Computed example of a mutant assay.
Amino acid sequence: MATSTPVVIYPPNKEGSRRVRIDGTVSGCAFSVQDVAAFMQDAGLQDYDEMDVVRSPLSEWQGSGPDVWTM
């Protein structure tokens, strides 16, 4: 994963998930910070955990922060 490209976590949808895009590619829909961490690990950041996702400058939380998963 190119570390200069942020991980974009889109606003929550009515199903209670958030779309996640890494390096310009949609990785899937996350239902929790743990899901985002798993996507980042799959993208090559194996040591990233939930706190890294929340604090990382790579993570761009759109619409709301990591505490919000419903509309």
Rank of each mutant, 00 (worst) to 15 (best):
M1V: 15
T25P: 05
D49S: 07
N13V: 02
K14S: 12
S64P: 01
E15F: 09
Y48T: 01
D47S: 14
R55D: 15
S59H: 02
Q46N: 14
M1K: 11
N13C: 03
Q46I: 03
R18H: 11
V33T: 12
Q34M: 00
T70R: 06
L58E: 03
D52P: 04
S4H: 14
T3A: 14
S64Y: 09
T3I: 10
D67H: 13
S56I: 01
V36A: 05
D47Y: 06
S59F: 07
S27N: 01
S27V: 00
V26D: 15
F39S: 04
V33S: 06
A38S: 06
M1Y: 11
R19D: 12
P6W: 05
L45R: 14
G28Y: 06
M1L: 15
V20R: 02
V53K: 03
E15C: 00
D49Q: 13
V8E: 15
G16S: 05
G28Q: 01
S56A: 10
V68E: 09
G65L: 04
Y10T: 01
P57L: 07
Q34S: 15
D47H: 12
W61P: 11
R21P: 03
G65P: 09
W69L: 01
R18A: 09
P11L: 03
M51D: 15
G44K: 04
L45D: 13
D49V: 05
M40I: 00
S4R: 13
D42A: 13
M1H: 13
V33G: 08
F31I: 03
V68Y: 06
V20H: 01
